[in-house]
Amino acid sequence: MIKHLKLVSLLLVTLLVSCGEISSTRTIKIAHGLDVKHSVHKAMVEMGKDLEQRSGGKMKLEIYPSQQLGTERENLELLQIGSLDMTKVSVGVMENFAPKMKVFGVPFLFRDRQHSFDVLDSEIGKEILDDGEKYWLKGLAYYDAGSRSFYTKDRPVHTPDDLKGLKLRVMESVTAIDMVKALGGSPTPISWGELYTSLQQGVVDGAENNPPSFYLSRHYEVCKYYSLDEHTVLPDVLVIGTNTWNKLTKQEKDWLQASVQKSVAYQRKLWAEAEEEALTEVQKAGVEVIRPDKSLFKAKVSSMYDSYKDDEIISSLIEKIQQTK
Results as ranks from 00 to 15, higher is better:
249 T>I: 12
253 K>M: 11
245 W>I: 03
247 K>L: 13
232 T>C: 10
244 T>D: 03
247 K>R: 13
234 L>M: 14
233 V>I: 12
257 Q>P: 09
252 E>W: 05
235 P>F: 02
254 D>C: 11
247 K>Y: 08
227 S>D: 10
257 Q>K: 15
236 D>A: 13
245 W>L: 02
231 H>C: 07
246 N>S: 13
228 L>M: 13
229 D>A: 12
243 N>Q: 10
249 T>C: 10
259 S>N: 03
239 V>E: 00
230 E>Q: 13
252 E>A: 09
251 Q>T: 14
232 T>H: 06
245 W>Q: 06
244 T>N: 04
227 S>C: 06
259 S>A: 14
230 E>R: 01
240 I>F: 04
254 D>S: 13
248 L>K: 01
241 G>I: 03
243 N>K: 12
232 T>S: 13
258 A>I: 09
233 V>Q: 08
233 V>S: 13
259 S>E: 01
240 I>S: 04
249 T>R: 05
229 D>W: 06
252 E>V: 10
242 T>A: 02
239 V>D: 00
240 I>K: 01
235 P>A: 08
260 V>L: 04
258 A>E: 13
246 N>Q: 11
242 T>G: 00
232 T>R: 10
236 D>L: 08
260 V>D: 00
232 T>K: 06
234 L>R: 05
241 G>C: 03
242 T>E: 02
244 T>G: 05
258 A>Q: 13
229 D>R: 06
241 G>R: 00
253 K>C: 10
253 K>N: 12
238 L>V: 14
240 I>A: 02
243 N>I: 10
236 D>M: 10
243 N>L: 04
238 L>F: 08
233 V>R: 15
242 T>L: 00
247 K>C: 07
247 K>M: 14
256 L>C: 11
249 T>Y: 07
253 K>W: 05
260 V>R: 02
253 K>F: 07
229 D>G: 08
236 D>G: 15
253 K>R: 15
258 A>S: 15
228 L>C: 07
254 D>M: 15
241 G>A: 05
234 L>G: 01
253 K>H: 06
228 L>Q: 10
246 N>H: 11
252 E>G: 09
255 W>K: 03
257 Q>A: 11
243 N>E: 15
238 L>A: 02
235 P>K: 03
247 K>S: 15
231 H>G: 08
248 L>E: 08
259 S>H: 04
253 K>L: 07
229 D>C: 07
253 K>T: 14
248 L>T: 07
244 T>I: 01
239 V>Y: 00
231 H>Q: 11
250 K>E: 14
246 N>E: 14
252 E>C: 02
237 V>T: 02
255 W>Y: 15
232 T>M: 09
236 D>V: 11
234 L>P: 01
234 L>T: 04
255 W>A: 13
251 Q>Y: 07
242 T>V: 03
240 I>G: 01
243 N>A: 11
239 V>M: 01
242 T>Y: 01
233 V>K: 11
248 L>F: 03
233 V>E: 11
245 W>E: 02
238 L>N: 04
255 W>F: 15
256 L>G: 07
252 E>F: 01
236 D>N: 12
260 V>Y: 04
227 S>Q: 00
